[in-house]
Design a protein around this nucleic acid. Structure first.
Lengths: 181, 181
DNA sequence: ATATAATTTCAGAAATTATTGAAAATACAG
DNA sequence: CTGTATTTTCAATAATTTCTGAAATTATAT
């Protein structure tokens, strides 16, 4: 690996974690490298820095683009494609959440929906009830996520920082409304 | 596969999704099977129903137990271990979230922390700043998650159903407090 | 058009991960 | 303690995923 020592362990770590995050080692390393690089990087630079083949980098770039995590940056007088992160860290994090939801949760909801609409056996078996329960739970989470996803980042950050404190606000709302009556 | 047709596609699906969820195909199928079974199942039953080896089932059960997703249920007059889900679907979902957080996010936070405390180069490089930013973002998410995790399920469900509506409640709180002044 | 630069593709090789099944270990009844 | 039932382990093998590198394709400058 041919990269500055201060980022090496960071890049290696993202490679190791890559598999847990839905992409492979090289893709994880590529993402880490692009995120901490001030200048956009071209494919040859990435291949050289990580010590992997040019073909592998090409496939990895495709994958990161399909996740909408990177984009190209034209550099005047250079025909190569240069890649940089597709937005702020906050935007990248939200993008990862949205993409994982699409890949990890949506297919399960679809399956449950079609099983429940089109049951293979009479309803009210134990299994059927549990699938219904699972469907409703996933749907609740996704409705919440859709809602939250639409909020503007500042409100969302406020909400995050509030944490469980939001429960107190809900209580307070009730008390205030009661008093007003 | 030797299971009732009404759950077969559900079980197969959980096998396919398994890899995206951090465990392998067999473990995914085992989990699905245990969740939709009214009676607790023993290892031989599972091996037979899924058509996999006894050894594979033994390893899978270990893994599901390490995720705290299943537990044993003693059956009078039977020396075999019988397995059932370790709690309600809600509890299982929260458990999956907690476990994935531990495996997917905590290690990255640790790494960032140690890199930032013990920097390999002078601070204020671009890379250093981005790592700091990433650290702070992850820490914010985790603090939020810890907070939320402690809430009781009913409040949490209310909050989920409220979704972005929580923004309105925050606004209302401000308005009510202002009026009271 | 032609030549050159850059990127993508993909078959085969390498690396990794999952599975089997038989042997070892453990648990327990009589 | 002995014998039997049950579970676990793990070396060998199978299956899957990732990676390489050369050939094919695409893009662009002259």
């Amino acid at each position: 690996m041919n990269i500055p020592s201060e980022i090496e362990s960071f890049v290696v770590h993202f490679g190791e974690m890559g598999s847990r995050w839905g992409f492979n080692r090289t893709v994880g390393q590529m993402f880490a490298l692009i995120v901490v690089s001030e200048q956009a990087l071209n494919a040859d630079q990435i291949a050289d820095m990580l010590g992997v083949s040019r073909g592998n980098v090409s496939m990895g770039l495709k994958e990161l683009q399909s996740w909408r995590l990177i984009r190209t940056q034209p550099i005047a007088g250079d025909r190569k494609d240069y890649f940089k992160p597709n937005g702020s860290l906050w935007e990248l994090a939200m993008q990862v959440l949205a993409e994982r939801r699409k890949r990890e949760v949506d297919p399960t909801l679809s399956l449950l929906r079609s099983e429940l609409i089109n049951p293979q056996s009479e309803q009210n078996t134990y299994a059927h009830q549990r699938m219904q329960e699972m469907h409703d739970l996933i749907e609740m989470f996704l409705t919440w996520f859709d809602d939250i996803y639409k909020m503007n980042p500042d409100n969302l950050k406020t909400l995050l920082k509030l944490g469980a404190g939001v429960g107190k606000v809900l209580d307070m709302k009730d008390r205030l409304l009661t008093k007003q009556k």
